[in-house]
């Protein structure tokens, strides 16, 4: 029956597999390289070694990069979560002309080319004294990742009857209580998904980071960037593998949560 419904199913399936393989290709190089026993970048031929993983767990440069990245990702995700959720709820409540305008505004960081955003933020951060500071990088990442929270939470809200807010009010709950005990509990899965998306976006972010930091903040992608420019060290491959694993795990969790968030009420 599926074949009947989609006559082109097989070619599309093959295309999908090819694209997936192409996208996953870096991993097929990175993973073996990270396990090489040599000091230089090579595909291991005789034996495998975890020495480069030991290296990134002991080298203070890499440890600091992990710490910086984790702090920046956590803080910027929290900030993006607050801004994105607030924005999504506001647009959900708005009516008429305001809806389209506010939506477009909230998604602007997603549409603008990263280099443009990066340059704008770089200039602004110098003026505001945020350049090359941890708060500056956190704020920049929050701006870049906010649209993902906005979109995810908006999808969750789309499945909610706007009248549940009125219902809560009519039952005696004030505006704050309505948000806290009716709106937010229904948005938990979407918010969690949005927060995780924001986290991995910050974890991977390089373009904006390069433009708003110089000496004091070294996130992981920035450390990798410097690492491959100075000397090509297989430790970079090990870091990449760790980053890829984190991204896949968190991204999968976020996708699963998003499904729950926008799908739980579809049976209505």
């Amino acid at each position: 029956m599926d074949e009947h419904r989609l006559p082109l199913r097989r070619p599309f399936l093959i295309a999908a597999v090819l694209v997936s393989v192409f996208l996953a290709l870096p991993l097929f190089v990175t993973l073996p390289v990270s396990l090489t026993p040599t000091r230089y970048v090579a595909i291991p031929t005789e034996e495998l070694s975890l020495r480069h993983y030991r290296e990134i767990l002991t080298n203070p440069l890499w440890l600091r990069a992990f710490a910086d990245s984790f702090l920046v990702a956590l803080a910027s995700a929290a900030l993006a979560l607050i801004l994105g959720t607030g924005g999504a709820v506001g647009v959900w409540r708005a009516t008429g002309f305001a809806v389209g305008a506010l939506r477009a505004l909230a998604l602007l960081p997603l549409v603008a080319p990263p280099v443009v955003t990066a340059l704008a933020l770089s200039r602004a951060w110098v003026t505001l004294g945020l350049f090359d500071t941890v708060p500056g990088v956190i704020l920049a990442h929050a701006i870049v990742s906010m649209p993902f929270v906005f979109l995810t939470v908006s999808a969750g809200l789309a499945g909610l009857d706007p009248r549940i807010e009125q219902a809560a009010r009519s039952l005696g709950a004030g505006p704050m209580r309505t948000v806290a005990s009716v709106l937010l509990p229904n948005l938990v899965p979407s918010m969690a998904a949005g927060g995780l998306f924001a986290f991995i976006i910050s974890w991977d972010e390089i373009v904006v980071t390069l433009f708003v930091s110089s000496r004091s903040v070294f996130t992981l992608p920035r450390q990798i960037w410097s690492g491959i420019r100075d000397n090509i060290d297989p430790a970079v491959a090990a870091v990449s593998v760790v980053t890829i694993v984190m991204t896949v795990v968190i991204g999968t969790a976020a996708l699963a949560l998003r499904r729950i968030g926008s799908g739980q009420r579809s049976g209505r």
């Binding site: 009125q166 009010r169 009519s170 005696g172 004030g174 229904n186 209505r268």
Partner: peptide, 20 residues
């Protein structure tokens, strides 16, 4: 008076039950 102070029961179109 705000809605929450009126103490009227309301049955909404589509019922507006709390899904969670």
């Amino acid at each position: 008076d705000p809605a929450e102070k009126r103490d009227f029961g309301v049955v909404f179109q589509g019922y507006a039950l709390f899904p969670h």
